[in-house]
């Protein structure tokens, strides 16, 4: 079997959504909703947007749930997690039922103007362009990553996703 490298599997950066860190959550949503990835004739929506600084250095990853977290109302986010959990434990929480929909909407719209750097997650792992597919799989499993940025000479040149790795293995097995 020919050795497959991260570089063979990756989606090149020019095809993958990315944006500067000061862009807003609203702009990130536009990016996610309007970028269709077509790989080998199969279409999908990107689940992650890469976030760069002014010098085109990768500074973070933004997932859908990070965006949702960024849109959450303040009365939840400024409380500790165990409080929030408790809040939803009761059948009907008085706080929730009293909130007007308009008020929530207004808040969400306001929070959509927050910069993505507020909610993005740090880059905890990367793959090198020449990394063997097995190493890519190891990285993904060990750290529960579904997407790894691929570096070549220290610069991000693309991303490799679990689905791409999965397909490569599928070809071997089926």
């Amino acid at each position: 079997m020919k050795m497959t490298r991260a570089g063979d599997l990756m989606i090149p950066l020019e095809k993958y959504p990315h944006m500067p860190h000061w862009f807003t959550l609203r702009q990130a949503i536009v990016e996610m909703e309007n970028s269709v990835l077509e790989i080998d004739g199969r279409k999908s929506l990107p689940r992650v947007v890469l976030v760069f600084d002014e010098k085109y250095q990768l500074v973070g990853l933004l997932r859908r749930r990070d965006i949702l977290r960024g849109l959450e109302p303040e009365f939840l986010t400024d409380k500790p997690l165990d409080y929030r959990k408790k809040l939803f434990d009761v059948k009907v929480d008085p706080n929730l039922s009293e909130i007007s929909f308009d008020k929530i909407l207004e808040g969400v719209r306001r929070r959509a103007d927050r910069p993505v750097s507020d909610v993005m997650i740090p880059v905890a792992g990367t793959a090198d362009y020449d990394d063997h597919i097995v190493k890519v799989v190891y990285e993904m499993n060990a750290n529960k990553f579904s997407l790894l940025p691929v570096l070549k000479d220290g610069r991000v040149v693309g991303v490799v996703r679990t689905v791409d790795v999965f397909r490569e293995f599928a070809k071997l097995v089926i």
């Binding site: 500067p20 702009q27 309007n34 002014e54």
Partner: peptide
């Protein structure tokens, strides 16, 4: 630096 975000014509 808007160019960075213009991944598609739709965007």
């Amino acid at each position: 630096q808007l160019d960075m975000a213009l991944s598609t014509d739709q965007v």
